[in-house]
Design a protein around this nucleic acid. Structure first.
Lengths: 366, 366
DNA sequence: CTGAAAGCGCTTACAG
DNA sequence: CTGAAAGCGCTTACAG
């Protein structure tokens, strides 16, 4: 109680005159114990609940905590328990990829983590390998979530060697020993083709991300494209496949060229955010309307569609959900501890098309 | 050295069979000291450089560090030094605001922090006040950067009372005792008007963010609008001011209505990301071309323009730069320590228009 | 130039 | 049901 008064009595002269700031007296569990008239261990147990404490004692401790405004020092607790309650989020922002789309993943992870009592250290360094090694060896985090994982991701060997577990968002070639979360891009490719086939379309075009993205390990691009192509063959459809660039004005030019090349195409599949963003202008300029003249199915997040006014039906990238699942699995593994092994999961979210009315049966051949 | 062998010899059975994982033996500064044949304090000093150590001894220590793969435990160091080397980044994602634009601020902060040796704890909780109090009282961070600061931000009282310093991105009504970084929105409004006036335009229209954003404390909206209005009055121009909604289809409808209402407008100012994103379609639909039929000046980040193919000249929001400046000032204040006071800064970045060719003299009156 | 020791603020066996 | 003590892995006055 005395301390409590102290806490408010002083004025720091640390900053601009006229601004009050509490003086920096740290209240420790020792202060709480003293105020409650118990030992430090009893105070600690009363707070963590790791051993039964008599009701009156517990009350005295809680009262002291409230009076003194005590909060455990996170660093000290981490040192004693070897648990930081922080997870490391390793983002990768590639030049040719659509950075804004990344935000939804980040938010899914940070919010999912918080709900489970964890905070998130966000790392966006170029050199993800070093960052991972640094956080791991200095014991700053209890586990990792890696975003934007490439087919052969150079962070994976480091992660496998680390004492902390990790979850991936993005399916690599080898997922042994790690938990993986991703949209099912094979099913997505199939679903896009099926949905247009069912409406009666027979000549389709797919515009994928740029080949640079593929070259950097973005395997999802060809997973979707291959599946779409295979499905089209099964169904006896024609599917023209193109890579589009990842920004203006390139992608607008690309789209026009592709549409020029295949005037008979009635269904367009878009696995390229920049293309989706540019498409409304391209269509308007060409005097085309969707779905009357062209049915369109995209693959991007609902948030993205909302933010950028995209009027096309699309498979939701499920960024938020993927982030959440990844972090939930990670926390489960952290809390399970290294002794109890648990099988690794590869969790591919089934695609669903969010209908925005951009598909319809093709008009009769001109 | 013996340890070093151990380190690689074991195979953990913690995860799926066939996956190697180093066993979790922590190497401490005690191990380093022993290997180097010195005391722990000497080993510590050799690494921190806080006292002069003879060259041979230092070499032995560094060798031991390399051999054993030693990295200091961040938590232990934080406990001993009261420095976490982590800064807390408090983001706010408001419903009506343009979330993707936020990413650039985040990246500016995380990368700026890293360059100064700090990591970033990203918090995106709804309740920023609690989050701030939690990180502050548990001593998880050395300081804070607050993003998206409102006119009367409820996080500010908590920040002022906290023992850690903080930097704001976004100018509040009262910035006493805190460092503030923002784009100069007053100068921005003036600049937008001036640039079109100089080209000969006499009737302008400004489309701002939605009034919901203003209601939530987005003072930058009216700061820019008021300055633009005042400048227009000074110059004898007509300036129509509207608030636009923050997403489709609302904003498209809005833009059409506003343009319908003022057919004589030759210059359009856009302080609304969603409006900027929707504008190309709107113009094409109306058969208008920029700058031939309408000169356009926006206010959004260059990254945003690139990502969303926006062809309009615009004042760069300077998100990345603002994040960097905020974190640099914060770190300077952290390292200066609470004793040496330093005056607070309010750093408003001067606006510059990134020319994308969307402005020209107005066509002669029809 | 170096070492032995105390201390940072917690948790958790070990005793009773 | 509770307390005294050791320990987590560092740093840093205090001595020499």
């Amino acid at each position: 109680m005395g301390r409590c008064l102290l806490w408010n009595r002083y004025e720091s002269n640390r900053f601009a005159k006229g601004v009050e700031r509490e003086i920096d007296i740290v209240v420790t569990i020792g202060d709480v114990a003293k105020a409650a008239g118990v030992s430090r261990s009893t105070a600690s147990y009363a707070l963590t609940g790791k051993r039964t404490i008599s009701e009156p004692v517990k009350q005295r401790v809680l009262e002291a905590v409230a009076d003194l405004g005590y909060t455990p020092n996170a660093g000290a607790r981490a040192l004693a328990t070897s648990q930081t309650m922080v997870i490391g989020l390793l983002a990768r922002f590639l030049e040719d990829e659509f950075a804004p789309a990344m935000l939804q993943y980040v938010l899914g992870v940070t919010q999912g983590a918080r709900e489970l009592g964890y905070d998130t250290l966000l790392v966006s360094e170029e050199d993800g390998v070093h960052a991972l090694a640094r956080l791991s060896s200095s014991r700053m985090v209890d586990g990792f979530v890696l975003l934007n994982v490439a087919e052969h991701d150079d962070r994976l060997p480091v992660l496998r060697a680390a004492p902390q577990p990790g979850s991936l968002v993005g399916l690599p070639a080898d997922s042994a020993g790690i938990d993986v979360f991703d949209l099912d891009f094979v099913a997505s490719g199939r679903l896009m083709v099926d949905s247009l086939y069912d409406l009666g379309h027979r000549e389709l075009m797919l515009v994928s991300q740029s080949e640079d993205v593929v070259a950097r390990g973005g395997a999802y691009v060809w997973r979707l494209a291959d599946a779409a192509q295979a499905r089209a063959r099964e169904l006896g459809l024609t599917l023209h496949h193109y890579y589009g660039s990842s920004s203006q004005p390139g992608i607008g030019t690309d789209l026009n060229a592709y549409l020029d090349a295949h005037p008979a195409v009635t269904g367009l599949l878009v696995n390229n955010e920049a293309a989706a963003a540019a498409l409304p202008s391209v269509l308007t300029e060409r005097g085309l309307r969707s779905p009357d003249d062209l049915s369109v199915v995209g693959r991007y997040s609902n948030d993205f569609a909302r933010a950028f006014s995209l009027p096309f039906s699309a498979i939701d990238a499920a960024a938020d959900e993927l982030g959440r699942r990844a972090v939930r699995q990670l926390v489960a593994r952290i809390q399970r501890g290294p002794d109890e092994s648990a099988p690794n999961v590869v969790d591919l979210i089934a695609p669903t098309i969010h209908d925005r009315g951009s598909t319809a049966p093709p008009k009769s051949r001109p």
